[in-house]
Design a protein around this nucleic acid. Sequence first.
RNA 1: GUGGUUGUAGCUCAGUCGGUUAGAGCACCAGAUUGUGAUUCUGGGGGUCGUGGGUUCGAGCCCCAUCUUCCACCCCA
Length: 464
Amino acid sequence: MSKEKPSIPKGTRDFGPAVVVKRNYVFGVIRRTFEKFGYLPLETPAVEQLSVLTGKYGDEGDQLIFKILNSGDFLAKTKQADIDEGHKHLTRKVSEKALRYDLTVPFARYVVMNRNDITFPFKRYQIQPVWRADRPQKGRYREFYQCDADVVGTNSLLCEAEIVQMINEVLTKLGLTDFTIKINHRGILAGIAEAIGEKGREGDICVAIDKLDKIGKEGVRKELLERGISEKAVTKLEPLYSLEGSNKAVLDQLQTILGDTAEGQRGLKDLHEVWNYLSRLNSEALTAQNDSGNPRLLLDVTLARGLSYYTGCIFEVKVNNVSMGSISGGGRYDNLTRMFGLPGVSGVGFSFGVDRIYDVIEELQLFPDSSQVGTKALIVQFDRESELYALPVLQQLRDAGIASELYPEQAKLKKQMSYADQKSIPYVILIGSEEMASGKLKLRNMELGEQQDLTIDDIISQLK
RNA sequence: GUGGUUGUAGCUCAGUCGGUUAGAGCACCAGAUUGUGAUUCUGGGGGUCGUGGGUUCGAGCCCCAUCUUCCACCCCA
């Protein structure tokens, strides 16, 4: 028998008990917020038909989908000619299923398949893992959880406003104070393209100006020219990078620049509406100040986002002063269900990246002690007699709702105490011959190192 | 997919120019202490140096491949 060193695939992780407890705390905050806003849970299979996923995320995205090899003789339907046609063609022959890449597309599929049973507007949240065949790096994993909330079947911009509200609430509850919810609108981007004389080229323009933070004005200029945008247009575009002042002031300036483009008008109207809703909701995203002095909600005309299906407002959330990419993102998509044969259903949604949020909270040391759970009391036993005596005591403790355990063997006292110590169990109950004789059990407070002789009833009322 | 980086005890890491038997701290186990953890003292176990090839009298160290880690790009949560 060969010794095999076990390992897990690149970009995947095991989560030990301490980590799972903290992750569940984050999930809990998110879940409670979603439910408070009227979203209901949905789960879909990890595996989707490959055809459901392909073509929804752009060419780059298709490359990153984990495909599943057909079972059995996966080469049965393949001929030499198929191999000669290249890997993209061959993939369809040997793979019909794939791991889901996000939660939005499976949701759209679900909506289309269940259109007659769903009451619109349909609000659902979904917390499940997704898989991407990306090369791992900081904050980027091949298996990670998304927490999505989406609503389909309404064009109301109240949904966009509520997304801002939910993001603000979740991050605040998690103890984060310095974060920026960036918002933009695909209409604004299209309007800009039109206004600078490059109508229809907003795709290329977006990809380039999205990198403004990273590569600076000159870098963006170079990339735009490489992508075939005219020099005249690039020059006209540049003032937009440095739009100054409040969100309101930026909107006013955009009005001047995009005023006579239809798409620009659509974007501006939508954004105004979102601001109106938030204002009436007395949103903290408008009133609370970041450490930098900026409001949390920030109109950023350089925000583009890669996913090709967005058509209206788009969001992205960045925690400031930590080296981590966006922890949340989303937007409105008008045509996603049309790809599955159901036109005219607009949706909007967003997603929290729990793995990144976890990394940020850990880095900022914001996990509260209360997010720890575990055994409250350990019963230590000495011999067979004390073990039998301890069993009804154990049951009484559990009936009283106290998380408790009996050490399962008659190990040395030192070993049992040390077990309690390492599991951070705050109380130990000792049951030996003296205790059995008197009926008073020894309750030891492990933190203080103090112990008292108490009846089981007194112990229960003290630990409850 | 492109470029770089990392891997030595359970963990964090030393390991000189390629040269004898690969080290430390922490952790673990046992004892000091037959009814008391976390502190103290004493002792102990533990390694195919990521894996597979190659160069060499000799490889943890040099070369190639591969896996993994982390980082940047592309893209994204």
